[in-house]
Amino acid sequence: MKKLAARRRSPLALMVLLLLGLTMTGTAYAALQPKADPGTSAATSSVDDIAAGEALFQANCASCHGSNAQGGVEADSIESPGPSLIGVGAASVDFQVATGRMPLNAPGVQAPENRMNLKFTDEEITQLAAYVDSLGAGPAVPDEQWLDLEGADIAEGGRIFRTNCAMCHNSSGTGGALTRGKYAPSLMNVDEQHIYEAMLTGPQSMPVFNDNNITPQEKEDVIAFLKDVEDGGNAYGGNSMGSLGPAGDAAFVWTLGIGLLIAAAVWLGRKAA
């Protein structure tokens, strides 16, 4: 991936890429209109899936989101029993359920990621998504084309990331604090598909980055950038101290750093045996 990016850096390639990007933007714009007619994305799901999904929904989700997914009583407040799911789309369901955020264990300021404790199989998630999608179509689960990272431009991804994402998720993708105990989670070791879905659907505090704002190609670039960081693309000078920036440096220098020097000083000042 790195090599690819390195070779592509000629002015001609840039032009081709720009053209390609523009074409793709247009295509994607047409294909993934957020206000698409109900059923465009649901068309691929079978009636069986929807029925199975509805059963799962009634058993696991309806208590908060309502039996028709219309949302709980105070659907607008964060602490409400769940919001309406009509029109959130399959991508949203896949993101929330497959990262273990839903079903929520206990109400809190924010639904935490919980991949160690997934409640559903991939098939069940698909069924659940099909059901929710059938209620009113929203963003569909992204196409494999945008997740394979083939031909993705890491540098462009980094640029998009720093403008749109770094202020919350940190320039190293390790997350950051929001107001009142909410937080932007770390993006390390998150599935490509889930990163894409998060941008598309704007889960919880996160805003939506629809395809007119960040095109599918740009989303793929962002994912490629994050995967490069995850694969050690930033690791050169040693332990990154949790990528906390100057806070990590300070923690180190005031403990182990000066500690080593003081230990040496104590040894130097002590009478030998």
């Binding site: 957020p34 206000k35 640029r159 704007g202 805003p207 939506v208 980055f209 629809n210 007119n212 704002n213």
Partner: peptide, 21 residues
């Protein structure tokens, strides 16, 4: 114009919940 790509924005592009720089 969208930062950094420099594309213009239609009102319909700005869906509820989205943010543009």
């Amino acid at each position: 114009m969208i930062d950094p790509s420099g594309t213009p924005i239609k009102a319909s592009d700005v869906t509820l919940g989205s943010v543009f720089h």
